[in-house]
Computed example of a mutant assay.
Amino acid sequence: MRAIAIALLAGLTTVGVAAPAAQASAAGRAPSCLAYKLDDRGAQDELWVWNNCKKAVNFRVRLANGPDSYCTYKEPRSTYSKFTWEWPQRFDGLITC
């Protein structure tokens, strides 16, 4: 009975560890029709993102050395969204969410 309890606990631990990996793989690279312009010349970087896609897109700005942005919803052909961050954070791409 004790061996069964240990095996069950081990199985629960494995499931708990695997769940975040599954969530991380659900987010993929944003479509190429989601256009952006990056100005990273100063201590504060600025990014403008437009949706040139034929459908709405949910995306995040992925940053190295800092937290990613919140999930942003953009209608097709809508005006840009602007994002800013400071060094040492660095633009690492757009991902879907």
Results as ranks from 00 to 15, higher is better:
residue 48 W to D: 00
residue 40 D to S: 09
residue 60 R to C: 06
residue 61 V to T: 03
residue 29 R to S: 01
residue 69 S to T: 01
residue 72 T to Y: 03
residue 46 E to L: 04
residue 59 F to V: 05
residue 45 D to L: 01
residue 70 Y to T: 09
residue 55 K to N: 07
residue 66 G to R: 13
residue 39 D to Q: 09
residue 39 D to C: 08
residue 39 D to F: 08
residue 54 K to W: 00
residue 62 R to D: 14
residue 52 N to S: 12
residue 54 K to P: 10
residue 67 P to A: 14
residue 45 D to K: 14
residue 73 Y to D: 10
residue 50 W to A: 08
residue 29 R to H: 00
residue 31 P to M: 06
residue 70 Y to K: 10
residue 66 G to H: 12
residue 29 R to V: 03
residue 41 R to Y: 06
residue 65 N to F: 04
residue 53 C to N: 04
residue 43 A to G: 11
residue 48 W to R: 15
residue 73 Y to S: 02
residue 51 N to E: 07
residue 65 N to M: 10
residue 48 W to A: 13
residue 41 R to T: 13
residue 72 T to A: 05
residue 51 N to P: 04
residue 31 P to T: 04
residue 71 C to V: 13
residue 49 V to Q: 04
residue 44 Q to F: 09
residue 73 Y to W: 13
residue 67 P to R: 12
residue 40 D to W: 03
residue 57 V to W: 01
residue 59 F to M: 03
residue 64 A to P: 07
residue 56 A to L: 05
residue 65 N to T: 07
residue 34 L to M: 09
residue 56 A to Y: 05
residue 31 P to F: 00
residue 70 Y to C: 05
residue 49 V to M: 06
residue 42 G to E: 01
residue 72 T to C: 02
residue 62 R to E: 09
residue 60 R to I: 10
residue 61 V to C: 06
residue 68 D to M: 07
residue 53 C to W: 02
residue 37 K to D: 01
residue 71 C to D: 12
residue 67 P to D: 14
residue 67 P to N: 13
residue 66 G to M: 11
residue 38 L to I: 14
residue 38 L to D: 01
residue 42 G to H: 12
residue 40 D to C: 07
residue 52 N to F: 11
residue 46 E to G: 07
residue 58 N to V: 11
residue 43 A to L: 11
residue 73 Y to F: 14
residue 67 P to Y: 09
residue 55 K to P: 08
residue 67 P to C: 07
residue 66 G to P: 12
residue 35 A to M: 06
residue 43 A to K: 10
residue 54 K to G: 13
residue 61 V to Q: 02
residue 39 D to S: 14
residue 44 Q to M: 15
residue 55 K to A: 14
residue 36 Y to W: 15
residue 31 P to H: 05
residue 64 A to I: 04
residue 45 D to C: 08
residue 70 Y to V: 12
residue 70 Y to M: 08
residue 56 A to T: 11
residue 35 A to N: 05
residue 60 R to M: 14
residue 29 R to G: 00
residue 30 A to H: 10
residue 59 F to N: 01
residue 41 R to G: 15
residue 60 R to A: 14
residue 51 N to Q: 05
residue 33 C to Y: 01
residue 51 N to T: 09
residue 47 L to A: 13
residue 56 A to M: 10
residue 30 A to M: 11
residue 32 S to A: 15
residue 47 L to M: 13
residue 55 K to C: 07
residue 35 A to F: 03
residue 67 P to L: 12
residue 43 A to E: 13
residue 50 W to T: 08
residue 32 S to T: 09
residue 39 D to P: 06
residue 73 Y to V: 10
residue 31 P to Y: 01
residue 30 A to Q: 08
residue 32 S to M: 12
residue 40 D to E: 08
residue 69 S to E: 00
residue 48 W to E: 00
residue 37 K to I: 01
residue 53 C to A: 11
residue 70 Y to F: 08
residue 63 L to H: 00
residue 33 C to M: 10
residue 29 R to L: 02
residue 40 D to V: 08
residue 32 S to Q: 15
residue 69 S to P: 10
residue 69 S to L: 07
residue 50 W to P: 02
residue 38 L to Q: 04
residue 49 V to A: 06
residue 54 K to F: 02
residue 34 L to C: 04
residue 69 S to C: 05
